[in-house]
Design a protein around this nucleic acid. Structure first.
Lengths: 234, 234
DNA sequence: GACAAATAGTGTCTCAAGGACAATTATCTA
DNA sequence: TAGATAATTGTCCTTGAGACACTATTTGTC
């Protein structure tokens, strides 16, 4: 039995790229220019180019770099969504990725698209299926929700969300970020303890003043490895 | 730009099916009858049948049911492995699944294949790349390792491994199972506390004697939901 | 039937890390 | 310089895992 006996499914790659901007969690959405779902908003992604891409991760990376101008500092595979009905063109599968970036590092702030084809969209507004940007193309709403769950879960037991922040950041910014992701208040002390215990960061020596006492700036250490804690935050 | 511009990658589904048998953790392997990797051992899987399968999970399920005679009580998606080089036939992706079953529930004990085309293979022997069954077809060694890591990880914070046990089992069997999966000794007390706290199980009323004092038999409750604990085992 | 062997299951103390929250420190503004 | 504001630290409480010894139940032997 060889693969020639089978009609081949469509295979695509889509990414959920998170950032923190204006005190809210956002993802990157693009307005589709072509059918199907023309003019709907969709996750950045597309078909694998078997000549350009060595793996699906290369495809995800290539598409994101195309849109943002930079390679996101964190990218992991999320899940593959497949069914006979998710794409009107036929049986299809999408390998979904989950990525984090500081919006300041992208070129989306500097050169906003005139045609508004690419937007940072507030996660809150995507929870309401009747709001702007809805409905998303394909099963992208489901993919987005899956990614959001993963982000929330990982925020409970790792420092992963720091990749939403710029290269240099303060503990206060991290604290705010975690509270926004989890949607509830977290003790500063707890985060500070983990921050210290992770041993992933170093002081830059600089401080950042946001109106009151200046806060120490930190950056990822060169050789930092993402640490998983033994317990979840409550 | 439509998908017609692209050569389409091959898309397959493979599963790592774990069980506990003869006091060791094993996975199901099949001997390949066809090229490529003819006569190598491989994970159960194959091409998606776009007519039969509504989703990739259906494919995984169908292939496993074909081989074992039953649907595994636990099946989740693991990861999709893709590259231009993992299959000599060309650019390919395999959606890998991770499944658990009690070997007693399958028909593999009752009707062992005469041609030895399907075997429960000891996980230990797969860690040694020079042993029997090696090397596995494609990147199945990597997929297997990924699955094993996932199983170990989940054993630390959930009761997931119970799906390797028969429908009725004792706490002692569960204890042994966990120690085998994690490869180290775990306090009975700790597991018993979690077992109780999970609220997933009920006494059958029967007991099972294994040579000394008889142990209470438990089964999954009808409406049991898999619980995640807040802390990992050490 | 008494008792030894073996495994099942419990009691209880210790310890590590998160939660609460108050106290202290540094910086800005008026 | 005082007051406001936010950063950072100190300390006690609580929860659940780890250690480990103790009790309970069944089987087999004499």
């Amino acid at each position: 039995m060889t693969q020639e006996n089978f009609k081949s499914p469509l295979l695509t790659v889509d990414s959920v790229l998170f950032t923190i901007k204006d005190n809210s969690l956002k993802i990157l959405l693009l307005k589709r220019k072509n059918s199907p779902f023309q003019n709907s908003w969709a996750l950045p992604g597309g078909f694998i180019d078997v000549d350009k891409d060595g793996s699906a991760e290369d495809t995800a990376c290539r598409k994101l770099t195309d849109k943002t101008g930079v390679t996101p500092p964190y990218l992991e595979q999320l899940n593959t969504f497949s069914s006979k009905s998710r794409d009107p063109r036929g049986w299809s599968a999408s390998i979904a990725y989950f990525a984090l970036i500081a919006h300041e590092e992208t070129n989306l702030d500097v050169t906003p698209r005139n045609d508004e084809s690419a937007q940072w969209v507030d996660v809150e507004s995507l929870m309401d299926e009747t709001a702007n940007y809805q409905p998303l193309a394909f099963d992208h709403q489901q993919i987005f929700q899956f990614a959001l769950e993963r982000l929330k879960q990982k925020a409970l037991y790792s420092m992963l969300p720091v990749f939403c922040l710029p290269k240099e950041f303060t503990l206060g910014e991290y604290h705010t970020l975690i509270e926004i992701i989890l949607g509830k208040s977290i003790q500063k002390k707890t985060l500070y303890r983990r921050f210290e215990a992770s041993n992933m960061f170093e002081e830059t020596g600089e401080t950042l003043a946001t109106g009151a006492r200046a806060a120490m700036l930190y950056r990822l250490k060169e050789d930092a490895e993402l640490v998983n804690f033994e317990r979840n935050l409550g």
